[in-house]
């Protein structure tokens, strides 16, 4: 009975994190972007600084008619948002937030599982782009695919570097093995990982697949109402997942800069702080950088990030053997 309760509790916690953290990031984005651009952002909904804006948006999306274009491939079109969203929920299972079993399910091949499942999310964009039977959607979908192929590799290599340093594929094991000087040792890998993850989420400055000034909204052009909302949710859960993974792999997860027992700050607090700090960086980059052109995107990946990631692998290998 207690087992069933515990499993239920874990499932509920995952679902709560899945539904609230993206809203917090979204609200932070509204406000941070507004202030960086010298405006207020939403101020009306809910009274205090428009805190209920995203809830109101959700209600609006849920009330809108569900349109499927006559020319579209109906089944694939309708399925695409779910395929784009659910992988990010599944990834949350393996992300540790606190020491001593502070993870929904400890997986031996955690890092491998997480990267594999995250890659599935992009299939949602590809399905949406193809099934919409719209030229802009098709272009957007193909751009998504090109971007995934270019950035998945540096993403994978940078993650492999941490696995080498820690000598384990388990995410909790990696955080346990992590020491502060890894910040410097794994710095190039960490930067590559974060940039490549940003590109996989198609966040600005890597938002070529949804470039609104040239292809409307890319693969999501034909979507309305709840299906569109699910794609948006997927983007923001994606930010949380990327921030959490960078935290776990490169920033020491639940470990704080000073003895946490003394200050009474539990590991979860550190994890969440780092996740929010990185999410803020994601938002910040969106405001700061212009969109990269398609050829610049490919060049950055193949001639910039991949060589750096390979060099990081070599560095990690030499240092790991030297200290063992």
């Amino acid at each position: 009975m207690t087992d069933v309760l515990e499993v239920a509790l874990r499932l509920v916690l995952i679902l709560v994190a899945f539904l609230t953290l993206p809203l917090l990031v979204g609200q932070a984005e509204h406000k941070a972007m507004a202030h960086m651009q010298s405006r207020l952002g939403p101020m009306y909904a809910g009274g205090f600084h428009g805190w209920a804006q995203l809830v109101a948006d959700g209600v609006k999306f849920a009330q809108k008619e569900d349109l499927v274009p006559a020319a579209a491939d109906r089944t694939v079109f309708k399925l695409a948002p779910a395929v784009g969203l659910i992988p990010y929920l599944v990834v949350l299972v393996a992300i540790p937030v606190a020491p001593g079993g502070g993870v929904a399910q400890e997986l031996d091949a955690g890092i491998f599982f997480v990267i594999a499942v995250m890659g599935i999310g992009v299939l949602g964009s590809l399905m949406a782009g193809w099934a919409s039977a719209n030229k802009y959607s098709l272009l957007g979908g193909l751009r998504s695919a090109a971007q995934l192929m270019a950035y998945e590799l540096p993403f994978l290599l940078a993650a492999a570097s941490v696995a080498m340093a820690a000598g384990t594929l388990s995410l909790s094991g990696i955080v346990e093995a992590w020491e502060p000087w890894w910040l410097l040792w794994q710095l190039p890998g960490g930067v590559v990982f974060f940039i490549a993850g940003l590109a996989e989420l198609q966040r600005p400055p890597f938002d070529m697949p949804v470039a609104d000034s040239e292809i409307i909204f890319g693969a999501y052009t034909e979507y309305t109402g709840l299906r569109f909302a699910l794609f948006l949710l997927a983007e923001y859960v994606g930010i949380v997942v990327l921030a959490a993974l960078t935290t776990v792999l490169f920033l020491g997860g639940w470990k704080g800069p000073f003895d946490t027992a003394l200050w009474g700050a539990p590991g979860v607090v550190w994890t969440l702080l780092k996740v929010f700090a990185l999410s803020f960086v994601v938002i910040w980059l969106r405001v700061s950088y212009p969109r990269l052109r398609e050829d610049q995107l490919q060049r950055l990946a193949w001639q910039g990030l991949v060589p750096v990631a390979l060099a990081q692998l070599a560095l990690t290998g030499v240092v790991a053997v030297a200290i063992s």
């Binding site: 995952i14 779910a82 969203l85 929920l89 599944v90 929904a104």
Partner: peptide, 14 residues
Amino acid sequence: ALVGLVLLVGVSFV
């Protein structure tokens, strides 16, 4: 097993 359960949760959420 829990991964499977979460997948179910995701499908039922949608």
